[in-house]
């Protein structure tokens, strides 16, 4: 099942939410933040979709917003899809999908650690890579640190 079929199936099921193709990725579908949990439950439970494997959760800094990315695979049906959810930079909050895919636990902790995205209802949301007392979220584009020096241009 390819992206257009999956998208069509989602649009038939959830007429109240908007789905659009991701221009950056041939497998990507952009969904609304409030649709995430409903869509995720549908994707894992529907017999024609059966996305029972979450490859990863990560995030992208787009300046004014963050994109939270969910890569999903179906082991029995051998197809996959990329979900993208845009969250505003001022209030970077999104529902956790740990209850649906337990893999998401540490992946969401990583996205929280490096991007500062708060995953609501996460069982254990604390830093996973940086030391506990670390200030800031290093993979944000506006992050600065005293150790980050730039060498002069040698070219």
């Amino acid at each position: 099942m390819n992206r257009s079929e999956i998208k069509q199936k989602l649009e038939e099921k959830f007429s109240c939410y908007k789905f659009s193709d991701d221009p950056d990725n041939p497998e990507g579908i952009i969904i609304q933040p409030d649709a995430l949990l409903d869509v995720a439950k549908y994707l894992v439970n529907d017999i024609d979709l059966a996305f029972n494997f979450l490859n990863f959760v990560t995030a992208i800094d787009r300046g004014s917003k963050f994109e939270v990315v969910y890569m999903l695979s179906s082991i029995p049906l051998k197809h996959r899809v990329l979900l993208k959810v845009a969250v505003p930079r001022e209030v970077p909050e999104i529902e956790s999908v740990t209850t649906i895919w337990p893999t998401a636990n540490w992946h969401e902790r990583e996205a929280y650690d490096l991007f500062g995205i708060k995953f609501l209802n996460h069982p254990d949301l604390r830093r996973i890579m940086m030391p506990d007392g670390w200030e800031g979220h290093p993979l944000r584009k506006d992050y600065v640190h005293e150790n980050m020096v730039h060498l002069p241009d040698m070219g």
Partner: peptide, 9 residues
């Protein structure tokens, strides 16, 4: 890692 925020110099 000379310009890394996380590496001890």
């Amino acid at each position: 890692y000379y310009d890394s925020y996380s590496v001890l110099k």
